[in-house]
Design a protein around this nucleic acid. Sequence first.
DNA 1: ATAATTATTATGTAGCTACATATTAATGTC
DNA 2: GACATTAATATGTAGCTACATAATAATTAT
Lengths: 233, 233
Amino acid sequence: MPADLRHSWTDIRDRIHGAILNGTYRPGDKLPRDEDIAQQMGCARSTVQRAMRDLSDAGIVERKRKGGTQVRADPLTRATLDIPITRREVEQRGSVYGYQLLHREIAVAPLSVGARFARRDPSRMLHVEALHLADQRPYILEDRWVCTDTVPEILSVDLSRQSANEWLVHNKPYSRCDLRFYAIEADARIARQLDAAPGAALLVMERTTWIEDAPITTVRAVTRPGYQLFTRS
Amino acid sequence: MPADLRHSWTDIRDRIHGAILNGTYRPGDKLPRDEDIAQQMGCARSTVQRAMRDLSDAGIVERKRKGGTQVRADPLTRATLDIPITRREVEQRGSVYGYQLLHREIAVAPLSVGARFARRDPSRMLHVEALHLADQRPYILEDRWVCTDTVPEILSVDLSRQSANEWLVHNKPYSRCDLRFYAIEADARIARQLDAAPGAALLVMERTTWIEDAPITTVRAVTRPGYQLFTRS
DNA sequence: ATAATTATTATGTAGCTACATATTAATGTC
DNA sequence: GACATTAATATGTAGCTACATAATAATTAT
């Protein structure tokens, strides 16, 4: 086939998606089999396969062997979140990044922290509190526990100069990550640290990471008032 | 090649990822070219290609034509959020879903709403306020504007029986969606509607959808106290 | 020397074949 | 009729080839 009238898989995807958008196929409807679509649209099955895989990843269609492809009966919103390291986030906003270590200790992790790792037995960990600044003003307050069994090297890192966030991300990649978002009211201490009114509503991002089955770290990042999180694109 | 000693692309991906996790390749490092990896691991280039595409989608490596592949110099956390329709979310929690229409009017959208659509000129839209319930208790309070130019059919839907959320999702698929999360303090009215303490910190999800360039709807969903949003697996 | 042009090269894509896998449908057995 | 077995079928995957594309490196022209 002449290369210039081949169809790209993104075109095929968009045409199938278009047929869903314009109502040709509605939620729950079954789509033709890949081979028929390929023939109808004048491309190879592998091209349809790629298009379908993308639509499937996006949560638009559901595919089952032998069962065929159907438009998701109960659509959902699927979005991708990119969370860079805090320093980069601040710099991308065009602000000057600052960092301040507030507290560092070795302590037995409370049960609530163990629970985030799905562990019952409490263990001694490194506990760090730090403040990230944007243009000299508080930006994110982080409360972190690092598992010293998994990451003993962290004990010899000078965390007053480099945030644990940054060190970990460059030295201990994770294989699994859980994220959680919720809102809290600033108590007196948090209000003071973040320069917020006591009782102010603040967005919290909680992140826990593992390498294989070994826990690495868990952070509770309390954002400054007015902070917004949004999806890319 | 005998089928039973072929390597699957997920295996290849995991081996490459493993080499990154164990420090063989560190952030910023360049990886060998696909063909060399293929030869080394005993598979076809297309298999490496698929593995790399996955690692690239996950934000672990960066690929450039001719430039080759390198481990992302500045790692980020990339996560996928699934937000089902509220009814389903409630039912999946094992609760009984309820719904209540609070307010319905045709009105000129305020500038703040127009801004979410990136539109300057204010226009008449359908404004709906509704409450989603879980086990008879308030769960999510939604404040929605629907563009009647794009979705005129919405005007003849009985929104006291079916939520706009549900009708739209089954009848007007979108091609683009913006999401935004932040925290607010409950004012007197919201506190009353959501059965929350005045001043309570609440997580808000704001969602705006389009079909092609035409605006469909924008919602501000205020969640009940204690609501948490998390990433799938 | 600098700029414009031309290779070179690694990834990206399209198409092909062959077979694996999961599931449903059909068939046979008790 | 209920249950186990077998066949049929749509998607999933691995490997192959050929070429497209983009970015860099080398070369030539000014």
